[in-house]
Computed example of a mutant assay.
Amino acid sequence: MNWIALTAGSTLEQIQKDSAQQPILIFKHSTRCSISATALSRLERAWQQGDVANTQTYLLDLIAYREISNQIAQVFGIGHESPQILLIRNGQCVFDASHWDIDYQDIKQKINA
């Protein structure tokens, strides 16, 4: 996967704009949590770029950028969890999952819907 590091809250506005042209996936990752590391690893191993064409992927380090996670919760109306995946389309979160519910097949189905 080609993760883009999400390190500035101002990027959320661009994500909302870009999501009108392509799906955007945000993975909120805690670098101190083994469940988060496992969920991220499982997603990366399963990810097939051809299955989810034109999807832009962002990775948020929750430990370093917790305030951005709070902004995400406010902007998209989704309560904070960790780990958590959000699928953004047309400026809105259309799918989210956390912990062991983060599943590549579910994500792929939502992206291609």
Rank of each mutant, 00 (worst) to 15 (best):
Q71C: 01
T11P: 03
D18Q: 10
Q21A: 06
A39F: 05
I4K: 15
S82I: 00
N90H: 14
P23V: 09
G9F: 07
H80K: 04
L60C: 09
N54M: 14
V94T: 13
Q49M: 03
L12W: 10
F76T: 03
Q22H: 14
G91V: 06
V94P: 04
P23Q: 07
L43I: 09
T38H: 05
Q109R: 13
Q21W: 03
A46L: 07
T38G: 01
G50S: 14
T57L: 13
I78W: 00
K108W: 09
A97G: 13
F76W: 02
W3P: 07
G77L: 01
I15W: 08
S34P: 08
I35E: 04
Q48I: 13
L6Y: 04
L86H: 06
V52Q: 15
G9D: 03
M1Y: 05
Y104L: 11
I26R: 00
S82F: 01
A46H: 14
Q48Y: 01
I4A: 11
D51W: 15
Q92P: 04
A73E: 05
S10H: 02
G77P: 00
N2F: 05
L87E: 01
S10P: 02
D103R: 15
L60T: 08
I63P: 02
S36G: 02
D96E: 11
Y58G: 08
A53T: 13
E81C: 06
I35G: 00
I72V: 05
I4Q: 14
S19V: 13
G91F: 09
